[in-house]
């Protein structure tokens, strides 16, 4: 793996980003879209928990807001990758960064479980508070994404 990280760091594009204003620019775009992602996730999850937007059917919240989390995520990933390659070996060995990736993976599994399983019974709870599995999904999702943001910010504090 070390060879791969060093090869990535050695690319012209990695060095160009790392020493220029491209780094803070890409980092800012990353923040704009990760906050958009989490803002939309938060609204869906609070609805799943039965804590907010109870006047809106759960399915419609999911249908109208999940695309925004996906747009945000689709831009956060390549911008994050562009930041990663500037110091690939450092980030790959950074414990906070590793925890961040693990939490994103868990959040993905949590989301997949919701969309393949818990949402099947939605007709019985679309207008009300969801049953326990769907509520748990919402709570776990908020917790995991908060962890992702914290680990992401912590990554920059470890040198």
């Amino acid at each position: 793996m070390t060879a791969l990280w060093q090869w990535l760091e050695g690319l012209t594009i990695s060095q160009e980003i790392g020493i220029s204003w491209w780094f803070p620019f890409i980092e800012s775009v990353h923040v704009v879209f990760l906050t958009l992602t989490f803002g939309a996730i938060l609204m869906v999850d609070l609805r799943l928990l039965g804590l907010a937007a109870m006047s809106h059917p759960a399915t419609r919240m999911v249908r109208e807001l999940v695309p925004w989390t996906l747009i945000g995520f689709a831009i956060s990933v390549p911008t994050g990758l562009a930041l990663f390659i500037t110091r690939a070996e450092h980030y790959a060995n950074n414990p906070a960064f590793r925890i961040k990736l693990l939490l994103i993976l868990l959040a993905g599994i949590n989301m997949a479980l919701f969309h393949t399983r818990w949402i099947k019974s939605v007709e019985t709870w679309d207008q009300s508070t969801p049953p326990l599995p769907a509520r748990l999904t919402g709570g776990i999702s908020i917790t995991l994404w908060l962890g992702v943001i914290l680990a992401g910010r912590w990554t920059g504090h470890l040198n």
Partner: peptide
């Protein structure tokens, strides 16, 4: 890092509320 992460969560709430309402006004969301 903890207080900065909370600051970012605050920004996310602004994105999910004020900016989402702007997107709604523009006919792009919800």
């Amino acid at each position: 890092p903890i207080s900065q992460a909370i600051h970012i969560v605050g920004v996310a709430v602004i994105m999910g509320t004020a900016v989402m309402i702007d997107l709604r006004v523009l006919g792009l969301a919800v």
